[in-house]
């Protein structure tokens, strides 16, 4: 069995056993949050890490997923499963349409365009009050049912979200080690050279953008069904930047970067929420963003490829693996 599959199975086993060993609703709820973010970052890592295309607007897709499923299931009585799929389809469609002009842009301009897109969608959540409820929020989103089984408590929801995360990680991992994954990485490596070997760059950028939008949308939908109440502020530009922090912290040299980055982010914010008021009693609001700012700057200056890359460097597993030759075959790198 390949080393990378083994890791996945071990991880799945850990996920499966955790609630049986640790009985804490607080910890479960944290892991559920990590699950939502891991799902988003899984798609984003493919987009940013592997294909090298920055996005500062993915909170928009997270929000579109959340509002679509909220609107269809609460207002129109759709089955949540269907409304989640509907959200994903809408997100995919919007990503496709927006992506065509957007991915003609590079670097700075791409960053600005995706940021602008995020702000526009956020404003729509705020202003289209008849559908979204505006700043008052959207109440009464039903929970998800599978036959008679209702994902209403944390333990059940935990299994639901992590099943989806695992499936998406597996999907991404399969992509990376294939013709498509190489095409994506070649775009980051050198657009001129990928053109020269016949890779339709635009097509792959769009595909991975749509994929990342679907991941974010499903995560947002599940989030909506989990918290049952959403409001626009949960989907503003800050969230897009938080996603960015997670992806950068985790890094893109392995698909696990998404999970690691999300975990670091969620755990750090929980920790800061506990510790900061003890140290600085007068600090209210989102004081903790100082730490995320510092984290971002330090990561990018000293560890630009994220924690997973740093780990690989330390353990000397620099050689990349392919189907026939898992990293195990090569042994130590440099």
């Amino acid at each position: 069995m390949h080393e990378r599959r083994l890791g996945t199975w071990l991880f799945a086993l850990g996920i499966l056993l955790f609630p049986l060993i640790v009985h804490s609703n607080y910890l479960l709820s944290i892991l559920i949050m990590i699950g939502f973010y891991s799902l988003v970052c899984n798609g984003l890592t493919m987009l940013m890490g592997y294909a090298g295309q920055i996005s500062l607007g993915h909170a928009a897709f997270y929000g579109i997923g959340a509002y679509t499923t909220a609107y269809l299931s609460a207002t129109h009585g759709w089955s949540p499963w269907l409304s989640i799929i509907a959200g994903a389809v809408i997100s995919a469609f919007i990503a496709f349409i927006v992506g065509i002009p957007t991915f003609k842009l590079k670097g700075h301009y791409l960053a600005l365009a995706t940021l602008g897109f995020g702000v526009i969608v956020y404003t729509c959540f705020k202003e289209f009050t008849s559908i979204t409820g505006g700043m008052n929020g959207f109440f009464g989103i039903p929970s998800i049912k599978l036959f008679a089984w209702e994902f209403s408590n944390d333990a059940r929801f935990y299994y639901l979200i992590w099943t989806v995360v695992l499936l998406s990680l597996l999907f991404s991992q399969n992509i990376i080690h294939s013709r498509v994954g190489r095409a994506l990485r070649s775009i980051e490596g050198s657009e001129a050279a990928s053109d020269a070997v016949g890779i339709d760059i635009m097509r792959y950028k769009l595909q991975v953008f749509v994929y990342s939008a679907i991941c974010a949308s499903i995560a947002g939908s599940l989030y909506a069904h989990y918290v049952t109440f959403i409001n626009p502020q949960a989907f503003d530009a800050m969230l897009s930047i938080y996603f960015l922090i997670m992806v950068i912290t985790g890094g893109a040299s392995s698909i696990w970067g998404a999970v690691i980055g999300s975990s670091v982010f969620v755990l750090l914010s929980e920790l800061l929420k506990e510790v900061v008021p003890l140290v600085f009693s007068n600090a209210g609001g989102e004081f903790e963003i100082v730490f995320f700012g510092v984290l971002l700057v330090v990561m990018l200056i000293y560890m630009p490829n994220g924690l997973t890359a740093a780990w690989k460097k330390i353990t000397g597993k620099w050689r990349t693996s392919t189907t026939l030759s898992p990293a195990a075959k090569g042994g130590g790198g440099r």
Binding site: I175, V180, R182, A183, V197, T322
Partner: peptide, 29 residues
């Protein structure tokens, strides 16, 4: 213009792109 983010053989495998068929969905599944 080498793909510095890949191994040597992956560079060459990328070169074979045009004669392969795998699509996004097929690759993921």
């Amino acid at each position: 213009e080498v793909f510095t983010n890949m191994s040597v053989i992956e560079n060459v495998m990328t070169g074979a792109h045009r004669n392969m068929k795998t699509s996004f969905l097929q690759a993921g599944l």
